[in-house]
Design a protein around this nucleic acid. Structure first.
Length: 567
RNA sequence: UGACCCAUGGUGUAAAGGUAGCACAAGAGAUUUUGGUUCUCUCGGUCCAGGUUCGAAUCCUGGUGGGUCAACCA
């Protein structure tokens, strides 16, 4: 009522996502007191990707926004699929993204004993029973979404027998798959998950943390909600596919009689030109279609990191995409926008020529070399300047010269003037062609000594400005150019008879030799640079090669793409 | 032919019954020592049909469309 009297601006400023609406209502109704506690609960069976980043930012963001806490919890209930390698990488990635779980690092496997006791509670209440049917039989008698299931012949075992059997399951008396513990709910439920779901199964496999201690492991449904409850999570935020699990989540917690968290589901992130399924990403790695989980073409956090993405840019991305319940496909151009926006402010510029053609300044003294001052980052005056050597023979980009230019071509052409970035204005006098291939091999120019940057006449306007390197001083370096891994917007949605693998982009990785200005060799790992016009690059931190290796992060509007439009 | 969830510009996301806004993308212009950046502008939307109401993107009913669910995965 009194809300209606709020002034309009304040109303407009609300703009909460639906999860924040729920949280604020719970706060108003004092459902959990004034306490907010969330968690990020990955299964350590793969590397984290940009979709997890959305969840991480959401959960930790909510914790921060409402002055609450956020746990990191490994949902490690299936020893067959999990590994410490993944545990370690997940912790590294969450930290790198800038989030801190402080002393609240947990594992579902920490709760195995407690979970076992909860199962005992259910058995004693005759709400759970040991079932001897095989996986196939259980599947067959579960029915279908439109047809009810049939009750198991073991459903009415006595509580004493169930207790005995369950203890013997734990003791290791039975083979994998021979028995399971099931909840006794309703085989005719329209919700498949309520048709006597499996709670525990037998797996004689060493667990990465508990070793051989256990041979029965709780299923997701029996572990997740209870772990939330044990940690006194207030809002358990998960993705939409768990929506149908919520009645079971609530049922188990109610029947066991423990603290009640609230599960809230949101739509997972989908990115165009990207696959996000852990299973498929694992395939890419195992089948060597990429060089590893941290291949810069991968949508993994570590891949994005190697590609040059900053934590800030990813957090900002998570912010921009919002949170809702409807299925979505975010265009990767938004992600690319986020890193360009961030790097544009912070990345120092270097010049590099990827596809060189030689320029000879006919009126420049043979053995002269000047040290030109160049701005490190025109967007940030505090970034200072660097010295770049300039001499008679230079390289420019092949595509920056045209013998017979179309109308809107601003760059070098016979008789035309352009500025060399941070240096002189030059004029093309003539050029040499290879008589066989017809390719331009040498461009002869004259420079105007009065136009060096900073000189009184340097203000003269010319149509184009080009990046360049001094031929004598340039550093040859192996440069890797990365492009999108897939050629179609939705590789998951393959046409008949095809899979996502049929849409892999064969040109997603190109290795070329490029020419860098010599200061490029002094760069330190992890520093970010922006190469003018060509794109953003970062130094590959894992490079063991002596020459610096650069990764393309995001192409600016490619000059050649523009050239197409000029025609 | 079941249950549950969802439906706002090309893509996302806001608007608590009261002016449909923002971002990305796209297009145009200005600035520019790179055609980048920056700035300005433009384009373009409430799935359909009824109902309630002075007033509906919002509430109700019914359609339509999409998604999820039949692992001893999570």
């Amino acid at each position: 009522m009194e809300d209606k009297n709020l002034p309009k601006p304040e109303k407009a400023a609300r703009s909460l996502n639906f999860i924040e609406e729920i949280i604020e209502e719970d706060l108003r109704n004092n459902v959990y007191g004034q306490r907010i506690h969330t968690r990020f609960p990955p299964e350590p069976n793969g590397y984290l990707h940009i979709g997890h980043a959305k969840s991480i930012c959401l959960n930790f963001g909510l914790g921060k926004k409402y002055n609450g806490k956020t746990n990191l919890r490994f949902d490690d209930t299936n020893p067959a699929k999990e590994d410490v390698e993944y545990v370690d990488s997940i912790m590294e990635d969450v930290k790198w993204l800038g989030f801190d779980w402080e002393d609240r690092l947990f594992y579902a496997s920490d709760y195995f004993e407690q979970l076992f006791d909860y199962a005992l509670v259910l058995i004693r209440k005759e709400k759970a029973y040991v079932c001897d049917m095989s996986a196939e039989e259980i599947s067959e008698t579960r029915g279908t979404p439109t047809r009810p299931g049939k009750e198991s012949p073991y459903r009415n075992r006595s509580m004493e027998e169930n207790l005995d059997l369950f203890h013997r399951m734990r003791a290791g008396e039975f083979a994998d798959g021979s028995k399971v513990l099931r909840a006794k709910i309703e085989m005719g439920s329209p919700n498949m998950h309520m048709r006597d779901p499996v709670l525990y199964r037998i797996i004689h496999t060493a667990h990465h943390r508990t070793g051989e201690k256990w041979c029965i492991y709780p299923m997701y449904d029996f572990a997740h909600g209870q772990s939330d409850s044990i940690e006194r999570i207030t809002h358990s935020i998960c993705t939409l596919e768990f929506e149908v699990h919520r009645p079971l989540y609530d049922w188990l917690i109610r029947e066991i009689g423990i603290y009640v968290p609230r599960q809230i589901e949101f739509a997972r992130l989908n990115l165009s030109y990207t696959i996000m399924s852990k299973r498929k990403l694992l395939e890419l790695v195992q089948e060597k279609m990429v060089k590893g989980w941290d291949d810069p073409r991968m949508p993994t956090i570590c891949g994005l990191r190697r590609r040059g993405y900053t934590p800030e840019s990813i957090r900002n991305f998570a912010d921009l995409i919002g949170v809702a319940k409807r299925d979505n496909v975010i265009d990767v151009s938004l992600l690319e926008f986020c890193i360009r926006e961030d790097l544009n402010k912070r990345a120092n510029r270097l010049m590099a020529v990827l596809n060189p053609v030689k320029i000879i300044l006919d009126n420049y003294p043979e053995n002269q070399c000047e040290e030109i001052d160049a701005l490190n980052n025109p967007e940030n005056p505090e970034s200072g300047t660097r010295k770049v050597p300039f001499s008679k023979e230079l390289y420019i980009e092949k595509e920056d010269f045209m013998e017979d230019p179309p109308g809107k071509f601003f760059r070098l052409a016979p008789g035309r003037e352009v500025r060399l970035r941070s240096a002189y204005i030059i004029k093309c006098e003539n050029f040499v062609k290879d008589p066989v291939t017809g390719e331009v091999t040498e461009i002869h120019c004259t420079y105007d000594p009065m136009t060096r940057s900073g000189m009184p006449e340097s203000g003269r306007k010319v149509k184009g400005t080009l990046h360049w390197v001094s031929g004598k001083h340039a550093v040859e370096a192996e440069v890797r150019l990365y492009d999108r891994l897939f050629t179609v917007e939705n590789p998951d949605n393959a046409e008949e008879g095809k899979t996502y693998k049929d849409y892999l982009n064969p040109d997603s990785l190109k290795t070329i030799t490029a020419y860098l200005e010599p200061s490029g060799i002094q760069v330190r790992p992890l520093e970010k640079f922006q190469f003018e016009r060509i794109g953003y690059f970062s130094v590959d931190p894992d490079s063991s090669i002596e020459k610096p290796v650069f990764n393309r992060v995001v192409a600016l509007k490619d000059s050649w793409a523009k050239s197409e439009k000029m025609k």
